[in-house]
Design a protein around this nucleic acid. Structure first.
Length: 362
DNA sequence: TAAACGTGGCT
DNA sequence: TAGCCAAGTTT
C-alpha cells in the first residue's frame, strides 16, 4: 500500500536504534516493572503529559492503588484527588471503569490481545499497542507523537500528522520494521529517541544513532518535518467566581456536572459572563435567579487567566457572604479551609484556595 | 473528520 | 508575551 520502506535497510536501523536505547535509556519508574497494570497506569498518565510531570503522580497513585483490585474498589473521589492537577480528568474515570472491567471480565488479568485490550475505556490504538508491546513484548505498533515525528524524518513522510488517519501510515511502517522478539525495546526506543534526540525543534542530529538512515537529515530537511497543521487558539470565556463564607467560617462549594470540562471536580460557585456585561452584576443575578441564594458580594479579590487546550477562562473572583440555611448534599458542601483540601479541585480553583490559605495564615 | 478535553514548561 | 508542545481518546 505504501512504499516508504523501499530501499530502507530495516535490519541496520533496528540494530543501531536498539543498541543506542540499551545504552542511553532513562531510568524511569515504569521501566522498573513488568506489571501490566503499572505499565497501563503510566501510559494513561503519559498521554499528552510530560515525563517529569507524571513521575510523582505515578509514584503516589500506585502507592495508594497498588493493584487492579485496589483501584477497582476505590471511591471515584479518591481517584480524582490522586489525579488532581494532572489534567484530562476523564482519563482517571475511564481508567477506573476499565480496571473494574478487567476485574469482572478477565479475572483481574490485563488482556494480552489487540481485540480485547482495545475494548477497554480510555485505551485507544496507541495505549493498546504500548501495553501489549511493553508489558507483553507483543510485536504491535505503539504510534504516538514521538514515533510519528521520528519516522516522518527517517522515512521522509510528509503527511499531516495532525490528521487522524495519518497515524495508520506510521502503524503500517512500524508493523514492517518491528523486530518480532524485541517489540518492547523497539517501541520504547522510537519514543525515547523522539524525546531525547529527535526533538520537535532543534533535533540533535549530530548525536543521533540512526543519522545515516535518516532521509530528512540526508536532505537537510529535519527542521521541516513533520508536517503538522496549526490548531486554533483557545476561545476566551469570562467567568465570575464567588468565594462565599458564612458566619461560621464555612465556604460554599459545589460539584461540577458529571460530563464535560473538569467533570465531577469541585469548585467555588461561578457563572459565565455574557459579552459586554459586568462580572459582579452577572454573578449577583446568577445567585438571585438561578440559585435562590441570598448572597452579598463584596470586593474583587483576584483577577487572572487560565488557559485550557480549547478555552481561555478570564476569571474575576469576588469575596462575599450568605445567610441562608444552605442544604448540603452530594453536589453542594459547606466546608472550612482545612476540609476544602480533601476535595478534588481544578488548578484554577486550587489557585483561589492557595490565596485563601495564605490570607488565613497572615 | 474535527472538536472537546488540562496542565505546565519552553521559546 | 503568546504560541507551541507532551508517551491520545472520545464523541
Amino acid at each position: 500500500m505504501f512504499n516508504f520502506l523501499d530501499n530502507f535497510d530495516i535490519e541496520t536501523f533496528q540494530k543501531d536504534l536498539l543498541s543506542w536505547f540499551s545504552r542511553h535509556k532513562r531510568d524511569l519508574p515504569w521501566r522498573r516493572t513488568k506489571d501490566p497494570y503499572h505499565i497501563w497506569v503510566s501510559e494513561i498518565m503519559l498521554q499528552q503529559t510530560r515525563v517529569e510531570t507524571v513521575i510523582p503522580y505515578f509514584e503516589r497513585f500506585l502507592e495508594e492503588f497498588p493493584t487492579i483490585e485496589a483501584l477497582a474498589e476505590a471511591g471515584e473521589e479518591k481517584v480524582l484527588k490522586a489525579w488532581e492537577g494532572l489534567g484530562y480528568y476523564s482519563r482517571a474515570r475511564n481508567l477506573q471503569t476499565a480496571v473494574r472491567e478487567v476485574k469482572e471480565s478477565y479475572g483481574g488479568v490485563v488482556p494480552d490481545t489487540e481485540d480485547e485490550i482495545a475494548t477497554l475505556k480510555g485505551v485507544g490504538p496507541y495505549t493498546a499497542g504500548a501495553i501489549l508491546s511493553i508489558a507483553y513484548n507483543k510485536p504491535v505498533p505503539a504510534v504516538d507523537g514521538n514515533v510519528m515525528r521520528v519516522l516522518s524524518r527517517i522515512l521522509f513522510i510528509e503527511e499531516d500528522i495532525a490528521k487522524a488517519k495519518t497515524r495508520k501510515i506510521f502503524e503500517q511502517a512500524v508493523r514492517e520494521m518491528i523486530p518480532p522478539d524485541s517489540a518492547s525495546n523497539f517501541n520504547q526506543a522510537l519514543m525515547e529517541l523522539g524525546a531525547i534526540v529527535c526533538t520537535p525543534t532543534s533535533p540533535a542530529c549530530l548525536l543521533c544513532p540512526v543519522q545515516k538512515e535518516c532521509r530528512a537529515f540526508h536532505e537537510g530537511m529535519q527542521e521541516q518535518l513533520p508536517v503538522k497543521a496549526k490548531k486554533k487558539p483557545p476561545k476566551p470565556v469570562k467567568i465570575a467566581v464567588a468565594v462565599l463564607e458564612n458566619a461560621k467560617g464555612k465556604f460554599l462549594i459545589n460539584r461540577r456536572p458529571k460530563e464535560g470540562l473538569l467533570a465531577n471536580l469541585w469548585e467555588f460557585p461561578n457563572c459565565e459572563v455574557e459579552a459586554g456585561k459586568d462580572y459582579k452584576e452577572q454573578l449577583q443575578s446568577f445567585f438571585k435567579n438561578e440559585c435562590q441564594l441570598n448572597a452579598v458580594l463584596h470586593e474583587e479579590i483576584m483577577d487572572f487567566d487560565h488557559v485550557f487546550s480549547h478555552i481561555k477562562w478570564e476569571l474575576s473572583v469576588f469575596r462575599g457572604t450568605f445567610n441562608n440555611n444552605v442544604m448540603e448534599n452530594e453536589e453542594i458542601k459547606l466546608v472550612n479551609l482545612q476540609e476544602l483540601q480533601r476535595f478534588p479541585f481544578s488548578v484554577s480553583h486550587k489557585k483561589i484556595i492557595r490565596r485563601l490559605v495564605k490570607w488565613n495564615s497572615d
